[in-house]
Design a protein around this nucleic acid. Structure first.
Lengths: 240, 240
DNA sequence: CGAAGTTTTGACACGGATCAAGTGAGGTGG
DNA sequence: CCACCTCACTTGATCCGTGTCAAAACTTCG
């Protein structure tokens, strides 16, 4: 079982058959631990396997001139490089933030189970589409929101995504990011991220101590950040 | 034939079988013309068909507070809302820029041909992955590049994408955008876009008159804009 | 305990936003 | 065919959000 969390999430959203679940559970995979800042996949690599985040935080990073822009963030249960199934040549890095546990599943096995199950195609294709939906929201954030709501939005998104995999407790979650990471993700300078975080604290919206971030008044924060979770497609639209 | 350009592009990149091509060519579809600013698909719509751009320009737009952020741009041969196959509920608009010709193909038919051909799954899934790769580059642009290279980058991307579908002639292409559109896409004010365009002109990098944009010194422009076309995945990596 | 990394603070600079007004071009109706 | 209207583009002045630089305080961990 490469990741209970992944299967649970897929199950909840597209409804896998007994057979499909068995196939996923029996996927052969390798596990490796990564430490803070370590590269999991590098720009230029030609991938022959996919990554599954089993625990911890991971981010996609592209070096643009002098900046190390963070393009997206992945949590337990995510498959950050499903895209390598069809675009094997990596044009950016995938890095660990803090300690993480990563599973690797060879493309050949994934391709096998995909050719024989159109509902697994549905499930994994959909995963990549949600990933794209998140990029769209980031484009909207970077293009249209000021620093305060941009940082707030990131915090809200992480909370919402962690919640569905059971990693949000009492509106708190573990966040192994430095302010530099937040800056790289939000397209801001570290100094301004610092001041923005202070303002979020002063407004009584968050606490962030010893790598634990707490949402104090989630509604107000979401409002300030202009956050609505729809774009995350956390549950099947057909049901709602 | 919903779009020769689409089929040609898919063909070039993944190599469709005779059978697959026939299936695509025989897809039933409806054609409609749209004028400047008209909505093709609206936020809140529950899609039951996919859009194929047959000619003209189309963009994805999300209203964020007071801004109408443009999230992505589509050209002849693109399928901007393939995602609705699995995420039918639209959380943004798709609009026409200038006059465009749009084909509509019902989901049911697309699903039919997908369940019976894993190479068509490959081809269309890949399309959505390239779409995501373009978002990533936009995130990088909005997060890390200044106005001049941001606008330059957009111009370079459009030129590169138009080139593969044969719509770039003598380094010129038709561009029905206003400066306001560019501003909405790049997360800049219209005044600053104006000044940025003037600077690109003064530097002898582009001309833009009567809706025709010309790249004067493409290499220099691409350098200035920090543009490399890899992320567009315009040809099959396996070959290169 | 020391060293390195992270957060915080202050002063100052600058890119780009905003506001306001003017110019030009395309489209329409008389 | 011209007068007018509208919309897009342009210009100048000013303001503000965020970046940069530099140094200090605090944490974490070996």
């Amino acid at each position: 079982m490469p990741s209970q969390k992944l299967i649970k999430r897929l199950q909840a959203v597209v409804g896998l058959s007994e057979q499909d679940r068995t196939k996923l559970v029996n996927l052969p995979y390798m596990v490796k631990e990564f430490t803070d800042g370590e590269y999991i996949v590098r720009e230029g690599d030609r991938a022959s396997r996919c990554v599954i985040v089993m625990s911890g935080f991971v981010f996609r990073q592209k070096v643009v001139r002098t900046r190390a822009q963070i393009l997206s963030i992945y949590l337990a249960g995510d498959m950050p490089d499903l895209l390598t199934l069809y675009l094997p040549l990596m044009d950016h890095n995938i890095c660990s933030a803090g300690q993480s546990t990563i599973g690797f599943v060879p493309h050949t096995y994934l391709n096998d189970i995909l050719t024989n199950s159109s509902s697994l195609v549905h499930a994994l294709w959909r995963e990549t589409l949600v990933d794209a939906a998140i990029y769209r929201e980031w484009v909207a954030s970077l293009g249209s929101r000021d620093a305060l709501s941009r940082v707030g939005h990131l915090v809200c998104e992480l909370a919402a995504r962690l919640e569905v995999v059971g990693l949000l407790e009492n509106a708190s979650f573990y966040l192994p990011f430095t302010q530099q990471n937040i800056a790289d993700a939000c397209g801001l300078s570290i100094v301004h991220v610092n001041r923005t975080m202070q303002e979020l604290r002063q407004r009584g919206l968050i606490e962030w101590e010893r790598r634990t971030l707490t949402l104090l008044r989630r509604k107000e924060l979401e409002e300030l950040a202009d956050f609505t979770p729809d774009y995350l497609h956390l549950r099947d639209e057909k049901l709602s």
